[in-house]
Simulated scan of single mutants.
Amino acid sequence: MMKKYLLMLGAAPIFALAACGGNSNGGTDAMNSGDTVTNLPAGEAMGDNMGAMNGMDGNAMAAAPMTGQVFANTVAASDAYEIAAGKLAQQKATTDGLKDFGKDMVEEHTKSTAKLKTAAGKASPAITPAPAMTEEQQANLKTLQSATGAAFDTAYKSQQVVAHEKALAAVQAYAGSGDVPQLREFAHDAEGMISKHYDKIKGM
């Protein structure tokens, strides 16, 4: 995707390919059940790194160091946002292209979450990703929930471009200098998926 992202993420929010510390899986579990997830707690375990990511551009996020836990939380939050937003796109988008893109986001970021959990579980000590969305991600979902028609399409596309920029920066940064080998490998693999999504939404 881009050469700068997330949410994503030297300390990006993203991600779907997108969370906070702790062992709560509420966000992801709720999303997998088919419910729309909003207003998840930011989670103290995300700490200052996650809070600082809100409003930061991809370069700033990529420059900030991330621990394995922060990276796992960031990707989990990004995935949670992408899944929830994708479900809204399937319901509310006015074009088949955006509806299909939303479907892809739900399917592929659900797979991303599963791969993240597997990689994090192999770390020593094991890491449990916590998919608590950032304030920015929660606000974005509220915007999508209230938007209709062409306004929804515009908001969704705009959000997706930014979210994938942040996510790309995050995985690229961690793949290059992450402290947990299993998560570095995950980040490297996730880069291709996120880049594909970024290119697709930019072209729509």
Rank of each mutant, 00 (worst) to 15 (best):
residue 143 T to P: 12
residue 162 V to L: 07
residue 115 K to T: 02
residue 96 D to I: 01
residue 27 G to D: 11
residue 69 Q to W: 05
residue 36 T to F: 07
residue 120 A to G: 02
residue 165 E to W: 06
residue 75 V to Q: 13
residue 83 I to Q: 01
residue 105 M to E: 13
residue 146 S to K: 12
residue 118 T to M: 15
residue 91 Q to L: 08
residue 130 A to C: 06
residue 178 G to S: 05
residue 98 L to G: 01
residue 197 H to Q: 14
residue 45 A to R: 03
residue 106 V to G: 12
residue 44 E to I: 12
residue 155 A to W: 11
residue 89 A to Q: 01
residue 58 G to P: 15
residue 149 G to Q: 13
residue 146 S to A: 15
residue 22 G to L: 07
residue 48 D to A: 15
residue 196 K to V: 03
residue 133 M to S: 10
residue 7 L to M: 06
residue 39 N to P: 10
residue 133 M to R: 09
residue 98 L to K: 01
residue 52 A to G: 14
residue 110 T to E: 03
residue 123 A to H: 08
residue 146 S to N: 12
residue 97 G to S: 12
residue 182 Q to E: 15
residue 122 K to Y: 03
residue 87 K to W: 10
residue 79 D to G: 00
residue 22 G to K: 07
residue 25 N to T: 04
residue 68 G to L: 09
residue 82 E to P: 00
residue 67 T to S: 14
residue 75 V to C: 10
residue 58 G to S: 14
residue 202 K to M: 14
residue 173 A to L: 12
residue 182 Q to K: 11
residue 18 A to R: 03
residue 204 M to R: 05
residue 41 P to T: 02
residue 17 L to V: 09
residue 9 L to P: 11
residue 105 M to Q: 15
residue 62 A to D: 03
residue 81 Y to I: 02
residue 2 M to L: 07
residue 21 G to K: 03
residue 199 D to H: 07
residue 194 I to K: 00
residue 41 P to G: 01
residue 102 G to M: 08
residue 122 K to P: 04
residue 177 S to F: 02
residue 35 D to F: 06
residue 130 A to Q: 08
residue 189 D to E: 11
residue 125 P to V: 00
residue 40 L to D: 04
residue 143 T to Y: 05
residue 59 N to L: 11
residue 197 H to P: 15
residue 128 T to M: 09
residue 139 A to S: 13
residue 58 G to M: 13
residue 76 A to Y: 02
residue 190 A to F: 04
residue 39 N to C: 02
residue 44 E to N: 09
residue 78 S to F: 12
residue 105 M to T: 02
residue 7 L to S: 03
residue 64 A to C: 10
residue 48 D to Q: 14
residue 152 F to I: 06
residue 158 S to C: 10
residue 47 G to F: 14
residue 17 L to N: 09
residue 63 A to Y: 10
residue 42 A to I: 08
residue 84 A to D: 11
residue 129 P to F: 05
residue 179 D to A: 07
residue 23 N to M: 09
residue 182 Q to N: 12
residue 21 G to P: 09
